[in-house]
Amino acid sequence: MVEYTEAAAEIVEAFNEVPASSKLELLLEYANALPALPERYADHPELLERVEECQSPVYLFVEVKNGKANIFLTAPAEAPTTRGFASILQIALDGQSIGTITSFSDQFIQDLKLSELVSPLRIRGMHGMLSRIKRQVQEKSL
């Protein structure tokens, strides 16, 4: 059994509890919950890192302060699936410690069991987001 953050465990539980027919609705709820970027990033796109693994324009930024990380992600409204993935990772990892994030298991993405709903391309996009979050956290905590 892989250890997750409490928030991540709740998300896995939510996706595993709902019937298959409601999984998309759940993903849409997450997509709608993705917070807008704070002004300091919204006005400075050059500070954001593009997630090249995603076919939609997804950008992220990580702030590390006092050993904890805040995660900012953005994705366009016409790409709700990608927004959903970004939102899930943001909820799972935001405010966590550096160690928790860098050792966070990629298994999380498999455990959401989304591969029946979305194509492998999409799932890889989510892996891309996660690995870039981890890398930024590592770089910024040095």
Partner: peptide
């Protein structure tokens, strides 16, 4: 392509 767009 985006399988959630319909729901939006």
């Amino acid at each position: 392509e985006d399988i959630l767009l319909f729901e939006t």
